[in-house]
Design a binder for these strands. Structure first.
Lengths: 199, 199
DNA sequence: GTCTATAAACGGATAGAC
DNA sequence: GTCTATCCGTTTATAGAC
């Protein structure tokens, strides 16, 4: 798809990154340069002109993906919301945004494929740590934070196993998670049994 | 590792499947037959004797992995537990079993690598649907089921992003999830706001 | 039942034409 | 700035020896 003529280098680069995301998400990390290039409407030689190696293309793709999620979180941050948990609420909303069903699967497949490369895993780990630290400093009790983050992550990764996303039940749960971040005492004050082991 | 002589065909097959799981989990779906074979202590030719093609090896591996999870769930089913939610409790325990930290990452990497093959994705989807149906018939209110399954899934997939697993907070959450399956009214009777949209 | 040798295809990357 | 042609290493799979 896409023509060759009349495209700026920037546009070509973007087209190549988009093609790489689609190809790798659909066919795995070993989608060939030839495939990616053709999907972007350029030749393999043309791809190599823009990205010196496959590794370079992939690392750029990873940086783009991580930046995209960060941007989504920023966009979901409500400026009017200054209560504890505001960042956690943005995280929940950001994690559950891409409701375009099959898109989720491709996106998850992409990131997991990318994670199989050690260099990528390291970058992603550092990024995850950064987000975790920010969430931990968001003013919510740890027990509530653990719950809502785990549940949001769980909802977002069901397509990994082929499950459906964004069902009515999922949306209702997401709303309740958001509610809990505003009223953490609801969860904390439930009559929990005493912890079973370790002091 | 492992000698060639004095091994029954069944043992060799099992060794090859185990080697394939290790190699693919560690190095991706394109771990070569040569690597897998050497890891199992046989030659590439020997591998091909037992599995006619790489696809056949992989599909067998997938069937094995899915059966292993099912077996874990069965093992976690408490015969003395006849209350509603017994299957869900087994699911939560099974999902959170492999506490051997780095093992989780390899196992998750394996399944996501395998999922990049369409044939595998189809088999896994059918299996997930089967489990979902069983859980839905487990006698828990939908809202509680959705919560505990999502949270358990979320806990189990954090290593995907490089996060730690089985932290004290995680274990505490897991216990609370199990508790909720025995007392679903705790969750249901919380003062939730009315649903925001759709009738 | 397993191994060696080899065929056939494919992948990434380079050189240089246009 | 992009494409063609090509090299070279790797991979799957086969044929046939042991």
């Amino acid at each position: 798809m896409g023509r060759t003529a009349g495209r700026s280098p920037e546009e070509t680069r973007r087209a190549l990154l988009k093609a790489a995301a689609a190809a790798i998400g659909a066919r795995g990390i070993h989608a060939s340069l030839d495939e990616i290039a053709r999907y972007a409407g350029v030749s393999k030689g043309g791809l190599i002109y823009h990205f010196a190696s496959k590794d370079e293309l992939i690392m750029e793709l990873v940086r783009t993906e991580l930046a995209t999620f960060q941007a989504a979180m920023d966009a979901e941050l409500d400026p009017a919301d200054t209560a504890p948990g505001r960042l956690t609420r943005a995280y929940i909303r950001a994690v559950l945004i891409p409701v375009a069903d099959d898109e989720v699967r491709v996106s998850l497949a992409l990131i997991t494929q990318l994670m199989s490369l050690p260099a990528v895993a390291e970058v992603a780990r550092a990024d995850a740590e950064r987000i975790d630290a920010a969430l931990a400093a968001d003013g919510l009790p740890e027990s509530v934070l653990t719950l809502v983050v785990a549940a949001a992550d769980g909802l977002s990764c069901t397509p990994l196993w082929g499950g459906a996303v964004n069902t009515p039940a999922d949306r209702r749960l997401a709303e309740r998670l958001l509610h809990l971040t505003r009223h953490p005492e609801l969860w904390e004050n439930l009559p929990w049994p005493p912890a079973t082991s370790e002091p």
